[in-house]
Computed example of a mutant assay.
Amino acid sequence: MLPAEREQHIITILKTNKKATIHTLANEFNVHEATIRRDLNKLEQYNQIKRTHGGVVLNDTEVWDELNFDDRETSYYYEKVAIGQKAAEFIEANDTLFIDSGSTTLHFARALAQKSNLTIITNDIHIASILKSTSNQVIVTGGTLYKDNYLLNGMLTNEALKHFNPSKLFLATPAIDLEKGVTHFNDTLASTKIQMVKQAKQIYVLTDSSKFDKVSLYHVCPNDIIDVLITDQTNSKIDWEAYHNHFNKLITVNTDAQSETF
């Protein structure tokens, strides 16, 4: 099989399965993993795919799914650490917080280790386990456990959220767009995010820049109600000036935790 044919077949596999590992692709085409890496390098140059830790996903503006939590945590790792640390600078004594489930919000939770006198409500058991060693009060919403992602969701989660009116929400998202705002591919997960948005006084969105200019099926919230958007500046394809005009406050961080406010 010619390289061009194999590359096209790789795209077809990703459209069907959403993701693949280098090992799986090598077995599929009966070639060495180094050959697959060369194919992926070429596809990445043409912006058709996005490399992840040990694998690959289709690079598309419409988000239908996402990797499991462990894969997402290693993708844009240093950017997510810097985003979490910057977000922690907005925390004040006696704050009450919603922390949404997500790989970026997990790093935000880690950055709260030295904070105290907080009340934190989360639907993520991984986040709750990190916060258990702090002096803060931690409340877990309950709900149905999504085992691959450590999150709790569903009717019980949404009902629990209605009982809280936190000062700040730290929201994660797989997709954000200038026109469509924050969206999500799963209606059940989107409904929980929507409930969090309704209850919170201030909304902080924490997301790496690979999620920009992406749209998913279910609407979560418009851009104009977001108080602070914190992201990284590694995505050179983003029209940062346009995003600045759509948000009350946009902060980009470098992996060395230096930041720029627009």
Score class of each variant (00 low, 15 high):
153 N>A: 15
171 L>V: 08
56 V>R: 06
226 I>A: 00
138 V>Y: 09
41 N>L: 10
137 Q>K: 15
241 E>C: 06
123 N>T: 03
38 R>L: 07
183 T>I: 04
86 K>R: 14
44 E>V: 03
17 N>I: 04
80 K>Q: 04
73 E>K: 13
54 G>M: 08
151 L>G: 10
170 F>A: 02
247 F>R: 11
101 S>P: 13
115 K>D: 01
180 K>N: 12
21 T>R: 13
140 V>S: 05
10 I>Y: 02
190 A>I: 01
115 K>Q: 11
7 E>P: 04
214 K>E: 00
47 N>A: 09
203 I>H: 01
62 E>Q: 14
260 E>V: 14
26 A>C: 11
235 N>Q: 12
164 F>V: 10
256 D>R: 06
46 Y>H: 11
203 I>G: 00
217 L>F: 15
81 V>L: 08
32 H>K: 13
83 I>C: 00
259 S>A: 14
6 R>I: 05
64 W>R: 14
89 E>N: 12
89 E>C: 08
185 F>G: 06
8 Q>R: 14
250 L>K: 04
146 Y>P: 00
55 G>K: 03
124 D>G: 07
153 N>K: 12
63 V>Q: 05
221 C>F: 04
22 I>G: 07
31 V>G: 00
180 K>G: 01
48 Q>C: 05
88 A>W: 06
121 I>V: 15
237 K>L: 13
253 V>R: 05
182 V>P: 06
39 D>T: 06
219 H>V: 01
36 I>T: 00
64 W>Y: 14
62 E>L: 13
27 N>V: 02
77 Y>P: 09
7 E>M: 15
66 E>G: 00
191 S>D: 08
254 N>T: 11
141 T>Y: 05
215 V>W: 03
36 I>H: 02
148 D>C: 08
258 Q>I: 01
152 L>R: 11
161 L>F: 07
188 T>V: 14
203 I>L: 08
81 V>N: 01
87 A>S: 05
183 T>R: 04
17 N>Y: 15
173 T>E: 03
179 E>T: 11
243 Y>H: 06
84 G>L: 00
215 V>S: 09
177 D>M: 07
179 E>A: 10
32 H>L: 09
167 S>K: 14
91 I>T: 12
113 A>L: 10
258 Q>V: 03
187 D>Y: 10
14 L>G: 09
3 P>V: 01
108 F>Y: 04
243 Y>E: 02
210 S>A: 12
241 E>Y: 14
95 D>S: 11
67 L>S: 08
192 T>M: 08
203 I>A: 04
14 L>W: 05
95 D>W: 07
253 V>N: 02
104 T>L: 06
26 A>V: 11
140 V>E: 04
230 I>N: 06
46 Y>D: 07
70 D>P: 01
50 K>T: 12
86 K>W: 02
228 V>T: 15
6 R>W: 07
218 Y>I: 09
31 V>F: 04
82 A>D: 01
220 V>E: 04
21 T>H: 10
132 K>P: 09
90 F>W: 07
55 G>I: 02
36 I>G: 03
228 V>S: 00
205 V>I: 11
